[in-house]
Amino acid sequence: MKDFMMALIFSKMVLLTASPISIFDGVYSIYLDKPISAVTSGASLQLDVTSMVLGVDFNDILEIRREVKRLFPSGSISANLIGRGVNTELLYDGNTFIGGRKVYLSLTGNIPVSTEWNRVTIDSDINLKNVLIEWKNYKNQVKGKCNANNENWWLFS
């Protein structure tokens, strides 16, 4: 119950770039005024790539997914969260969020809770044009039991 309340109260989405940025075949560094941290290990870095998929029919989810897969191959984007003596690697492995006429790529990894990072680097093998970078801590967390062996499971949304 404590974990649920912590996630519910302290979860948030933080915009890391004030305006859209472009990354052309290389590393882009973001120095943060205030450090970011994870409320849950399900936190992630989100890249709003909506501006790069504008030619698709936003009423056709399959068309959007095909275009995202074509434009952003799995493994083509990685990031590092950098803090005092702590580096955490994140990778885009095909996770995509689509909704409200927005398209986000999700970079995930083993994210430690209660660690602060004050710099983010993004390394891309492809050109990223006019993207926004966000840090997301999940808003809702539901705990349940697995019927087979009574183990705990978590659902983040």
Rank of each mutant, 00 (worst) to 15 (best):
residue 63 E to I: 09
residue 63 E to Y: 03
residue 63 E to H: 04
residue 64 I to L: 05
residue 64 I to E: 04
residue 65 R to D: 03
residue 65 R to Y: 08
residue 65 R to W: 09
residue 65 R to I: 07
residue 65 R to V: 03
residue 66 R to H: 15
residue 66 R to Y: 14
residue 66 R to C: 02
residue 66 R to E: 10
residue 66 R to T: 07
residue 68 V to T: 12
residue 68 V to R: 04
residue 68 V to L: 10
residue 68 V to A: 04
residue 68 V to G: 00
residue 69 K to W: 08
residue 69 K to R: 15
residue 70 R to S: 06
residue 71 L to R: 14
residue 71 L to G: 06
residue 71 L to A: 11
residue 72 F to R: 14
residue 72 F to P: 03
residue 72 F to I: 08
residue 74 S to I: 02
residue 74 S to N: 02
residue 76 S to L: 07
residue 76 S to I: 09
residue 76 S to D: 03
residue 77 I to A: 00
residue 77 I to P: 06
residue 77 I to G: 00
residue 77 I to E: 05
residue 77 I to S: 02
residue 77 I to T: 05
residue 78 S to V: 12
residue 78 S to D: 01
residue 79 A to N: 08
residue 79 A to W: 06
residue 80 N to C: 06
residue 80 N to F: 03
residue 81 L to V: 04
residue 81 L to S: 08
residue 82 I to E: 07
residue 82 I to W: 05
residue 82 I to C: 02
residue 82 I to N: 06
residue 83 G to Y: 11
residue 83 G to E: 00
residue 84 R to K: 14
residue 84 R to Y: 12
residue 84 R to I: 08
residue 84 R to P: 08
residue 85 G to D: 07
residue 85 G to L: 11
residue 85 G to F: 14
residue 86 V to D: 07
residue 86 V to Y: 15
residue 86 V to A: 10
residue 86 V to T: 12
residue 86 V to M: 15
residue 88 T to K: 08
residue 88 T to D: 02
residue 89 E to I: 10
residue 89 E to L: 14
residue 89 E to A: 10
residue 89 E to S: 14
residue 90 L to Q: 09
residue 90 L to Y: 05
residue 90 L to E: 01
residue 90 L to N: 00
residue 91 L to W: 14
residue 91 L to R: 14
residue 92 Y to E: 00
residue 93 D to M: 14
residue 93 D to Q: 15
residue 93 D to E: 13
residue 93 D to S: 15
residue 93 D to R: 15
residue 93 D to L: 15
residue 94 G to M: 03
residue 94 G to Q: 09
residue 94 G to S: 04
residue 94 G to K: 04
residue 95 N to M: 10
residue 95 N to L: 02
residue 95 N to W: 13
residue 96 T to G: 03
residue 96 T to A: 10
residue 96 T to D: 05
residue 96 T to M: 11
residue 97 F to R: 13
residue 98 I to S: 02
residue 98 I to M: 02
residue 99 G to K: 15
residue 99 G to D: 04
residue 99 G to Q: 07
residue 100 G to R: 11
residue 100 G to I: 11
residue 101 R to M: 00
residue 101 R to H: 09
